[in-house]
Amino acid sequence: MLELRLVQGGLLKKVLEAIKDLVNDANFDCSPAGFSLQAMDSSHVALVALLLRSEGFEHYRCDRNLSMGMNLNNMAKMLKCAGNDDIVTIKADDGADSVTFMFESPTQDKISDFEMKLMDIDSEHLGIPEAEFQAIVRMPSAEFARICKDLSTIGDTVVISVTKEGVKFSTRGDIGTASIVCRQNTTVDKPEEATVIEMEEPVTLTFALRYMNSFTKATPLASQVTISLSSDLPGVVEYKVAEMGYIRFYLAPKLEE
């Protein structure tokens, strides 16, 4: 028996909007620790890892570990029917072939039940080692989204380079080149406007902008994004999900052959 009640149901709507275009089908894993998902995009170039810790739910009942295969587009369709302020409860019986999403309006005067068929998904779970990164950049998520969008009008790839001068995003395409440098800036009025660069060593990596742009669909979740980089390793783009967890996007870099 599974019953997860999330008062901030809007968070789940935003989570689905953030990942549904990158991943078609995925297993949601439910354990006493929380509600999680790990899935790769169809090209196996990007991986998304979601964690919503059990403490973040108002009520969290998960009698035994359960893996539920869902089509994320269909799940997003159902969650779109919830109001942004609705309380969302996810319910499933052990061995059931469906999951129920219950939406309660804040004033409790409207209760909706949406039942969605589950599916069998054969997916391998990858071990992601804890890594020390050469550079970690924390910046406003809207700024990062703007940079990715702007650069993708010029080129297909972004070179991200972190030095003590700052973080540089650059691209080149048929019509020319573009380069945007963001410097560390902690003297802002609001902490969410800060850009913080922690650098152990300078690092330069090349990524496909198509994926970066897809990751920025998570922007409504968090005012800040964290980009963690090490040479020749996947870059990690992380958005916090309120106080309860995170969405991490891992993107394999483009490497010299």
Partner: peptide
């Protein structure tokens, strides 16, 4: 010339 790496190159099945 750079080519697109895949995730499996870095993370193995657990």
């Amino acid at each position: 010339l750079k080519s697109q790496a895949r995730i499996a190159r870095f993370f193995r099945a657990s």
